[in-house]
């Protein structure tokens, strides 16, 4: 029996956000990415699905100290060189976007300064042509001091920069607006705070159609159901006409999935080969969240990325 079509018409739809700027629009990217645009529940019908979800591969500004061995393996020759890392992620693993994550500026993870962050940003921009996500360390004081400089270094490239939260949004929203970037609004698995951050940012004059929401991510086995149901509610609010929720959304699958002991443990014989188990955990998390309506998935392991790309191509 054929799968019935469930096309329907709703009052609202997910906005479309373009990330990256080519030379025509004042940037140096060789391609741009458009996300969003769904006009129905997830995968309701081909016409209503909107843009295909995309994969952003994580590149860290400093070599990670705590990555599990099976995650280090595919990147072992580039972990000290963000530019080479980004190049590999694009050319070998098919990244649609590079997510440059500034873990190294966190006081507990290297406490690197603005010069370092700006240098890394420029090097990655020069190394790859895909659009960039510029993602702070999550420590407000350092993010407020350094991310504006990162933003300025990528001015005109129409990056996606973040994150801003209910308690800390003013400086980054203002600088993203000035430098022509898109913005990620973050909420701690709380749909009401998610909406509130969007209102606060929009109140500063930041256009709603340049926002991507990050509702926080729970990995498989570690709260994925919360992420799933929040994404579901966001989509339903969007379709119901709530403009403050009608943005594309991003999920941080890579780092969350690889924090799970089921992904990273190598000493549990009964759990099967860790070289397959870790990527499987990451891919399962990603595929599940794809079906909740995620538009951009941050990922890490090339095997997981390949699986998820296949899945996206089959679903869309």
């Amino acid at each position: 029996m054929a799968v019935p079509k469930i096309a329907d018409s709703y009052a609202g739809s997910v906005s479309r956000v373009v990330i990256g700027a080519t030379s025509d629009s004042g940037g140096t990217r060789t391609s741009t990415v458009t996300v969003g645009g769904a006009t129905n529940i997830v995968y309701g019908s081909t016409e209503q699905t909107g843009e295909k979800p995309v994969i952003a591969i994580d590149v860290l500004d400093t070599a990670p100290a705590d990555w599990p061995e099976h995650l280090v393996e595919p990147y072992k020759d580039v972990l000290d060189d963000p530019a080479a890392w980004a190049k590999k992620a694009v050319e070998e693993f098919g990244a649609d976007i590079i997510c440059l994550k500034f873990d190294g500026i966190h006081p507990d993870q290297g406490d690197k300064d603005a010069d370092h962050a700006v240098k890394v940003t420029k090097a990655v921009l020069a190394a790859v042509g895909v659009p960039l996500i510029l993602w702070g360390c999550g420590y407000d004081e350092k993010d407020n001091a350094i991310m504006p400089k990162v933003s300025e270094a990528a001015k005109g490239e129409n990056c996606l920069i973040g994150t801003v939260t209910e308690g800390n949004y003013k400086s980054l929203a203002a600088i993203a607006l000035a430098d022509g970037h898109n913005l990620i609004t973050e909420a701690p698995l709380d749909i009401n705070i998610g909406k509130q951050v969007n209102i606060l940012v929009s109140d500063m004059g930041f256009p709603l159609e340049r926002i991507v929401t990050f509702q926080s991510t729970g990995a498989l086995g570690y709260g994925i159901e919360y992420s799933y149901s929040i994404q579901e509610r966001q989509r339903l609010a969007t379709l119901g006409g709530d403009k403050m929720m009608a943005m594309p959304s991003i999920s941080d699958v890579g780092s969350e999935a690889w924090r799970a002991k089921e992904a990273k443990s190598t000493d549990v014989p009964g759990w099967g080969d860790a070289a397959d188990r870790g990527p499987a955990w990451e891919a399962s998390t990603a595929v599940c969240l794809l079906q909740s309506g995620i538009d951009i998935i941050r990922m890490r392991h090339p095997k997981a990325i390949e699986t998820v790309k296949n899945c996206i191509n089959k679903l869309s």
């Binding site: 909406k195 509130q196 209102i199 403009k243 929720m245």
Partner: peptide
């Protein structure tokens, strides 16, 4: 439960869908 709560819900309320 026809609108999603947020602290500033009054600020953004408008008549809504046609």
């Amino acid at each position: 439960n026809k609108q999603l709560y947020s602290d500033s819900y009054l600020k953004v309320y408008s008549g809504g869908s046609k």
